[in-house]
Design a protein around this nucleic acid. Structure first.
Lengths: 116, 116
DNA sequence: ACCTATTTGTCCGTATGTATG
DNA sequence: CCATACATACGGACAAATAGG
């Protein structure tokens, strides 16, 4: 994997990094299950700070492209955008509910009502 | 606006902060257009770091609840996505479930499991 | 048009916690 | 138990956009 960042660019370093890796995942030059370099290692090889790499990694994680696990590192997601649609939908709805402080009881009530 | 954070809690400070403000926006105790305290000011009043507040603010910005502008501060969004997106998500999930012959009981079980 | 203060944006450095293997 | 590696939080610094005089 070849990654370059340009400190002189107006786009933030972490964004350059996320964009680069995201593209590699999408065009399959980074295969599913493949392991990305550790944040510290990539940071050192690019001459930037670990936090900058971590921020890019976390953005990609939020987007579903990679998985981050403590002690294991970063791994390209199995199939970023081809999840079982129902499971993905459930996860999204539950996440939305939680972030809006909608209780489980309230959510199931909404589901039940919609289902009829 | 009353915000409290508990450093002893297992949930991260920035998440506690985001949840608190998010709730205030949803229940309208924070009106649209209202200005939030600056990151530094809120951090100092809570005895936490500016970066922690900024992280919460940026999470809320990504979720569409507030708008951040350099030199201006944080402002509650005009029309934060409230229950509309949740209702839409619920409708989509229920439709998906029905078309796949997933029972209401099975669907609520999935929801409950995801919710934990 | 200019200057200054304000405030977020980014990046770096450091420290500590915690799940993984 | 121990090394690895992400997660969070703190602190400091400078840049960039905004607002106001």
């Amino acid at each position: 994997m070849l990654i370059r960042v340009d400190p002189a660019s107006e786009t933030p370093l972490f964004e350059q990094l996320a964009t680069s890796i995201r593209s590699s995942v999408i065009d399959r030059s980074l295969a599913a299950g493949e392991r990305l370099p550790t944040a510290r290692a990539l940071a050192e090889s690019l001459g930037i700070n670990m936090h900058t790499v971590l921020r890019a990694y976390q953005e990609l994680r939020d987007e579903g492209f990679i998985e981050l696990r403590r002690g294991r590192g970063a791994i390209v997601s199995a199939s970023p955008h081809s999840y079982d649609s129902l499971a993905a939908g459930v996860a999204a709805v539950v996440a939305d509910a939680r972030s809006n402080n909608v209780s489980l009881a309230a959510l199931t009530a909404l589901i039940r009502e919609e289902y009829q």
